[in-house]
């Protein structure tokens, strides 16, 4: 069985369907890029997976466990294994970088503080931010903040990381640093779903690409297929627009 198995997932805002019948199986350690026009439901899919938007129907299985989004216990269990990083405002502005990373391991999971801090320092070094432990989010650039957010997600030792347009709010020259961190994580056994408009990055780093439109999965395939030889007309139209601009 796949590491993450989504079948028939539906989300509605009131009576308006936002996701209809999403089927997607993701293997362990796979980096899957989600592409498609704005409003196609890519972000909603990520938000639904962690229960920020309650699914109306469908089944989600992570690590062989069925997730019941109506059950608090089940949702807690899921969230112990999944992390999400948003476009911006991820970090708690009232906490230092170190506290941002250690607050959940220490306060929510009850791990020893010294141990969590040592791990946090190692993670910060890994995302190229050693020495920034005492800084506050507003003293960092947007790119640095996003790298802290990724370090914070990693501190949870998640099996699944969802990245929702994490570079969309950044100045162009800061995007690369964040993408490098993500690329570095791929192939470490962490399953990743990445919503992004950085087509060049997705083509280079993703194992598979999912093309979405109007709340449905249009096409799934390796980057070479989706970008160069799409089988679906909708994908072709989308790609031609992207390339032209």
């Amino acid at each position: 069985m796949a590491h993450l198995d989504i079948s028939g997932l539906e989300v509605r805002y009131g009576t308006v369907p936002v996701l209809s019948g999403i089927d997607l199986a993701v293997e362990r350690g796979e980096l899957v890029g989600l592409v498609g026009p704005s409003g196609s439901g890519k972000s909603t899919l990520l938000r639904a997976l962690v229960g920020l938007v309650p699914p109306a129907a469908g089944r989600v299985v992570l690590e062989g466990k069925d997730v019941d989004y109506a059950s608090k216990a089940s949702l807690r269990g899921l969230r112990d294994h999944a992390a999400i990083v948003f476009q911006q405002y991820n970090l708690f502005q009232n906490m230092s970088v170190l506290d941002n990373i250690t607050v959940t391991p220490v306060k929510v999971r009850g791990r020893p503080k010294a141990e969590a801090e040592a791990e946090a320092r190692a993670l910060l070094a890994r995302v190229g931010l050693a020495g920034k432990e005492r800084a506050y989010p507003d003293q960092l650039s947007g790119g640095q903040q996003q790298r802290v957010a990724i370090a914070r997600a990693l501190a949870l030792k998640p099996a699944l990381i969802l990245l929702d347009e994490v570079t969309a709010a950044l100045d162009p020259e800061l995007v690369r640093d964040v993408l490098d961190v993500i690329k570095d994580l791929a192939g470490e056994g962490i399953t990743m779903l990445l919503v992004s408009h950085e087509m060049g990055f997705i083509r280079e780093a993703a194992h598979r690409v999912v093309m979405m439109d109007a709340g449905r999965v249009v096409e799934v395939g390796p980057p070479s297929q989706i970008f160069d030889a799409p089988t679906e007309e909708r994908t072709r139209a989308f790609m031609s627009k992207i390339i032209r601009h």
Partner: peptide, 11 residues
């Protein structure tokens, strides 16, 4: 997003 991030971290 700060609040959602905390929610997903089981706060």
């Amino acid at each position: 997003p700060q609040i959602e991030a905390a929610e997903v971290m089981n706060f």
